[in-house]
Simulated assay, not measured.
Amino acid sequence: MSEISLSERLGRRLKSTGQVLATAESCTGGGVSAAITDIAGSSEWFDRAFITYSNNAKMEMLGVKAETLDSHGAVSEAVAREMVLGALANSQATMAVSISGIAGPGGGSETKPVGTVCFGWADNLGWEKIKTYHFKGDRSQIRQQAVETALKVLYEKLDDSAC
């Protein structure tokens, strides 16, 4: 499944279900929103992107708590959850995805090696999915895998909801 075709399918599904998406991205630096806005007409189902690379941006734009960052670190499921809920709260979206990870080549540790990426997905009806993935490859490959994972889980959620 290519990124563009997945984006197109996701867009059709969002539009047909009346959903509107927002993104909150850190390590992907807007890669998910770029994949989405590459699709003509995406303004019908995409509201906005929060690119919150710094911890201050996460706190200011999404309401991530300093205590959460201090306790868990920026690359954590707790922060991914606060990011996705903040994206929903600070947008007109009905669904959102968040991503925070270590794309490398530096920045990894024994407990959080390069390739560790935490995601949050949520909608305004109370559905939440928070998950950590461990991707392999260089910086570009890790970021690409993160973008594809973000889109795929959204598409699968909407596909399951349509059944």
Rank of each mutant, 00 (worst) to 15 (best):
V75P: 00
A74H: 04
E128G: 02
V79N: 01
L14H: 01
A122M: 07
A93G: 09
A122K: 04
Q92M: 10
E8A: 13
F46V: 04
E3K: 14
V75A: 01
R139I: 06
E156T: 13
E60Y: 02
K112P: 01
E82A: 01
R13T: 12
S2W: 00
L85G: 02
E156N: 13
I51Y: 09
A103R: 05
V114E: 05
G18F: 00
L158I: 07
R13K: 14
S43K: 01
S43V: 04
S5M: 12
G30A: 06
A78E: 15
L85C: 06
N90R: 15
S76P: 01
K15E: 15
C27R: 03
N124G: 05
Q19P: 02
Q19W: 07
V64W: 10
W121T: 01
L10S: 11
S161I: 09
A96E: 06
L154Y: 12
S98P: 01
I51F: 07
T68P: 04
G115S: 10
R143Q: 15
M95G: 00
C163S: 10
E128A: 03
E25M: 07
V147C: 10
Y53L: 12
P113A: 07
V20T: 13
Y53C: 11
D47K: 08
F119C: 03
G120I: 12
N90V: 04
G137H: 09
G73S: 06
S76I: 04
L21Y: 12
S43Q: 04
F50D: 08
E60N: 11
V117C: 05
A24R: 07
W127M: 13
E67A: 13
A146H: 08
G30C: 05
L62S: 07
T68C: 09
K157H: 15
E77V: 00
R13M: 15
G29Q: 08
D123G: 00
E3D: 11
E128H: 12
G31F: 03
K136I: 07
G30K: 05
R139Y: 11
A80L: 12
G137M: 09
G101L: 10
Q92F: 03
R9C: 14
K157Q: 14
L62N: 05
R143V: 14
G41R: 04
A150D: 11
T28E: 02
S161T: 11
G115F: 13
G104N: 08
I39D: 04
A122G: 08
V32S: 04
W121L: 09
M59V: 03
M1Q: 00
E148H: 12
V153R: 06
S16Y: 06
K152D: 14
P113Q: 00
